[in-house]
Simulated scan of single mutants.
Amino acid sequence: MNHCPNICKWGAVLLLVAVSAGCNSARPAADQLPGTSTSAPRFGQVASPPVQQPEKLEAGKPSQLAADAQESAKPVEANLTPDMPAPSTPAGAAGTTDKKVQTSSNPTPSETSKQPSETSESTYDAKKPSLMGLRLSDTKTTVKQKFEAPASEYEMDDDKDPLTVYEYEGFIVGFNRLNGVEFIEVTSKDINPGLNGLYLGQKVKDAETALGKPDTNTNYALHYKANGTVLKLDVDPKTETIQSIKLFAVKT
């Protein structure tokens, strides 16, 4: 019997089968993509979407999702150009004030009250005695021209000659029935009476320095007489301070 051809024939067939099986095992599985499932959907089922593998992060480098989140969290800046004016704050808004500032050009009411000039009427002249820049030869009209209308006005009873009194801030002026000045009296130490720098409340020695030696000097008053007038300074004998300053006519 001739068995050799049959054995060779079957040997060749087995060799072809082995080679074919080896080729199929070396082929990639269904051209699989990274991150996708290798199982095919059964008939009547919807294929599941491929599962996205988590992104690998390098050390010290934020992920793209984190970078996008940071970018979206940034505040949107106003699109202002250099030529656009800054928005103005409405009147009455919080943090704004609308107050009038007090300056030297805007004096307080007390500063606006008229006083004797430091250059022309603050020097006492015995030949032309005056107080507050007023003389006994002045009238109501001249007083109002210098000091405007008084703060108050009242009558002083006098059997011989009733007097009308104008009261200003820091001094008073009395007028006789002919509207002439009868007396002037200083009532405040904060006002300049026009006596060479002497003020109410100063000492007797200050009066002698400013006005010289008085014609009469008692423990209670100093008298300076000139041209039918008397400048009288009432004095506190205990403290030797000047309590009042008056200018009036000598009674005959």
Rank of each mutant, 00 (worst) to 15 (best):
H3N: 15
H3W: 13
N6M: 11
W10Q: 09
A12V: 13
A12E: 07
L15N: 01
V17N: 10
V19N: 04
A21M: 08
G22K: 09
C23W: 08
N24M: 11
S25P: 00
A26S: 03
A26Q: 03
D31N: 10
Q32F: 03
L33G: 07
P34Q: 04
G35D: 10
T36N: 03
G44D: 08
G44F: 08
Q52I: 10
Q53T: 11
E55M: 13
E55F: 13
E58F: 11
Q64M: 14
L65E: 06
A66P: 04
A67Y: 11
D68Q: 13
D68E: 13
A69H: 13
Q70H: 14
Q70P: 08
Q70S: 15
E71A: 10
S72M: 11
S72R: 15
A73L: 07
P75D: 04
P75F: 01
P75R: 00
E77T: 14
E77S: 12
N79D: 15
L80H: 12
T81P: 06
P82I: 11
P85S: 09
P90F: 04
T96K: 05
T96H: 02
T97D: 02
D98M: 08
K100P: 06
V101A: 09
T103E: 03
S104K: 10
S105P: 02
S105L: 10
N106L: 05
T108G: 08
P109H: 02
P109S: 06
P109K: 02
P109R: 09
S110H: 12
E111H: 07
T119Q: 09
S120Y: 03
E121G: 05
S122Q: 07
Y124Q: 12
D125A: 14
D125V: 15
A126M: 00
S130A: 15
R135S: 03
R135T: 12
L136F: 00
D138R: 03
K140G: 12
V143E: 00
K144N: 06
K144C: 04
K144P: 01
F147G: 01
F147V: 04
A149N: 13
D158E: 14
D158L: 06
D159H: 07
V165A: 07
G170V: 03
G170D: 02
I172F: 01
V173F: 02
N176P: 07
R177N: 06
V181N: 14
V181W: 09
V181S: 10
F183R: 01
I184V: 15
T187I: 05
G194L: 11
G197R: 11
L198S: 07
L198D: 02
L198A: 10
Q202M: 14
K203E: 04
V204H: 08
K205T: 15
A207S: 09
T209W: 06
T209P: 00
T209K: 15
L211D: 09
P214G: 01
D215M: 12
T216N: 10
A221R: 15
A221C: 08
L222I: 03
H223G: 08
A226E: 02
V230Q: 10
K232D: 14
K232S: 15
K232A: 13
D234F: 05
V235C: 04
E240W: 03
E240I: 00
I242W: 00
I242S: 00
Q243P: 01
Q243H: 00
I245V: 09
L247I: 06
L247W: 08
F248V: 04
A249S: 12
